[in-house]
C-alpha cells in the first residue's frame, strides 16, 4: 500500500501541475493545492515539496509590497483577446492589493491599461482603459478609496513584448499595477 502511494505520488504531483498550467498559467490557488496534496500523499518521501511549502509560509518582516512570496508581488494582470473582464484566476491577486491599499490609505497605485497591437490604435486606447477600469472597480468594491487609484490607458503604445505572434500579444494585453 505504501509502495503504491510512493509510486503514485510523483505522477499525481505532475498531473496536478499540468492541470494547474493548462487551466491558467499563474493560478496561485492551484499552486498551493499542489504542494499541500503532494506532501500529504507521500508523507515520507516528499523532501523537496515540504521544503518549498515551508519557505512559502515563512514570515516576512519587511514591507508587504516587497515580499516576493506574497500575492502583492504579482503586479501584472493579463487579459484574454478583446476582453476587459478580469479573469477569475486574478481575483485573489486583486483582492490582496485591495486589502493592502485599504489598510494603507496613504498609498496610491497607478493602473496602466494596455492592449495588443491588433486592431486600431484609438480603439485599443479605449480597450486599455476598460481593462484598467475593470481592476479599479473590483478594488473600489473591496473598500479602496477612489483617490488611491489612478487609471491611465496606453493602448498599444507601450508594448511589453514586440513579436507579432500570440505569445507577445498575450503579454501585451495587461494592466500594470504601479505603486
Amino acid at each position: 500500500m505504501n509502495k503504491v502511494l510512493i509510486l503514485w505520488a510523483p505522477l499525481l504531483f505532475s498531473l496536478l501541475l499540468v492541470a494547474g498550467c493548462s487551466s491558467t498559467p499563474t493560478s496561485e490557488a492551484a499552486g498551493a493545492e499542489v504542494s499541500e496534496q503532494s506532501t500529504g500523499a507521500d508523507g515520507t518521501a516528499g523532501g523537496e515539496a515540504s521544503t518549498s511549502a515551508a519557505s512559502q509560509s515563512g514570515e516576512w518582516y519587511g514591507d508587504p509590497l516587497e515580499n516576493p512570496n506574497s500575492l502583492l508581488a504579482t503586479r501584472v494582470i493579463y487579459f484574454d483577446f478583446d476582453q476587459s473582464t478580469v479573469r477569475t484566476d486574478y481575483l485573489d491577486v486583486i483582492q490582496a492589493h485591495a486589502d493592502y491599499l485599504a489598510a494603507n490609505p496613504q498609498m496610491v497605485v497607478r493602473l496602466e491599461g494596455h492592449a495588443d497591437e491588433k486592431g486600431t490604435r484609438e480603439y485599443n486606447l479605449g480597450l486599455g482603459e476598460n481593462r484598467a477600469n475593470a481592476v479599479r472597480s473590483l478594488m473600489l468594491a473591496q473598500g479602496v478609496s477612489d483617490n488611491q487609484l489612478i487609471v491611465v490607458s496606453y493602448g498599444e503604445e507601450r508594448s511589453a513584448a514586440f513579436e507579432h505572434n500570440d505569445e507577445s500579444w498575450a503579454l501585451n494585453r495587461r494592466v500594470e499595477l504601479i505603486y
Binding site: E122, L125, G126, E129, N130, N133
Partner: peptide, 9 residues
C-alpha cells in the same frame, strides 16, 4: 476628439 473624462470614451 475622444475624451473619457466622464468615465468612458
Amino acid at each position: 476628439m475622444t475624451l473619457s473624462k466622464d468615465g468612458n470614451p
